[in-house]
Design a binder for these strands. Structure first.
Lengths: 242, 242
DNA sequence: ACCTGAACACCGTTCAAGT
DNA sequence: ACCTGAACACCGTTCAAGT
């Protein structure tokens, strides 16, 4: 790699996998950050690595973005750009589509999963499309007043919950840690944990906290469908009780 | 503060809020880490700050703990130590108690919330008490085979989901950011987002992604009860359909 | 066995300076 | 307006050395 200071013309440096040397702008920074996250993971997306991939000095990024935290929240917003579904006849279809869209979006960029659990709250992108859509669907379902906000928070939590866990990064000790988990599952005491022992074949590497791979290597699509059904059935039943 | 190198006797240094100078051990390290997280937040819990609070050199901690990541997962395990409820007659009561216990545990240590979303998966503490209890409850409910693992993953995801979001850390710009959120809520277009506009008084600072405070300053207890009801109703309805 | 102390390879962010 | 370049105050982790 060439030295950073050996750049006498002041021209944009050419990094290894750098994109075009077009003028820097916010969208290009966000796109490059997402590419870096997809390739190397969330904590490898430092401002220094990001700047290097863009062929600029680290501090140049601060002209367009005020902090790493806000940059990452914009990356998440970009990933979730199109999760708000098209209007649907049945409110159940709208909510189901939102959950599936969110799941699909994160599956394409699994390394942003930790952001889903901690930044979805502070989205604030003034884009209330999904918020309005979910509220309208829940109101159509029959929720109003305090129950509407309860149902809304329930749904948003459900939207993030499963997917956050499914793609949560597992320890990097891929060698030792994986065998340790497998060993602890193999030595489960059937006296002490009978239900676990009896269903081990179904749960091994498929159940949360019983896995040594995450959703990238061991998808949980069947459980996700069950999860979506549970949320929608729960909302249906609750609204019928009023 | 006294210099770190001015410690000629080799005695334990006395830090500002340090505990007893008892011999270092894993439990003391975990307890000190949790105290530091409670006081200053998750990312202020560096090995260096932690060591300083224990009156030792940063690298001393590595004798007891192999990495910061595993230390934090042990801190989470300690916080969730007693979430597994006592056996209950009705499976619904067991699952509800587990969710309430988890919520209560995190409420006491809200700054660990991000760990809940990303480390609960890799618990691996060989403590399968909760896993077995949840599986037994779901089997008692009537789930078996693939549906059991679907129900299990659904419940674990539900266990972490709401609480993770409720206590997720919001941007530190408490001055500017809070007003920005409030302003964007005040200027919501009733034409474009009618349901949101009509229910703004219920949702302002109470709805996810419509808040400028997190669960510490603005609890969401009512929504949480709604959420628990939704999960349990959903599972009840799904099992009845089989 | 347990801890010190130096060192390595990083971080995010601020700020003055260039063009 | 936009970027460079140096600097500040940090990081996690490794490893040799002490006791």
């Amino acid at each position: 790699m060439t030295s950073k200071t050996a750049n006498p013309r002041g021209r944009r440096k050419k990094a290894a996998g750098a994109d075009t040397q077009s003028p820097l702008n916010k969208d290009a920074i966000i796109a490059a950050a997402l590419a870096l996250i997809d390739r190397d993971g969330l904590d490898k997306c430092s401002l220094r690595n990001l700047a290097s991939s863009l062929g600029v000095y680290p501090t140049a990024i601060y002209w367009y973005v005020s902090s790493r935290e806000l940059l990452l929240s914009e990356v998440l917003a970009k990933v979730l750009e199109h999760v708000a579904p098209a209007p649907a006849q049945r409110w159940q279809d709208y909510l189901r589509a939102a959950m599936v869209n969110c799941h699909d979006a994160v599956r394409l960029h699994p390394n942003i999963a930790p952001l889903l659990g901690s930044q979805l709250v502070s989205n604030s992108s003034t884009d209330f499309t999904l918020v309005e859509g979910v509220l309208a669907a829940l109101q159509q379902a029959g929720f109003s007043g305090p129950a509407l906000s309860g149902a809304y928070n329930t749904f948003i939590a459900a939207l993030a919950g499963f997917t956050t866990l499914e793609y949560a990064p597992l320890p990097e000790n891929t060698e030792a840690w994986q065998h340790q988990v497998q060993e602890s599952l193999r030595t489960v005491d059937p006296q002490q944990h009978p239900t676990l022992a009896r269903n081990m074949d179904q749960l091994s590497n498929r159940g949360f906290s019983l896995r040594w791979q995450n959703g990238v290597d061991a998808a949980l699509d069947e459980s996700f469908r069950f999860y979506v059904d549970t949320i929608l059935c729960g909302l249906e039943t609750l609204v019928a009780r009023r």
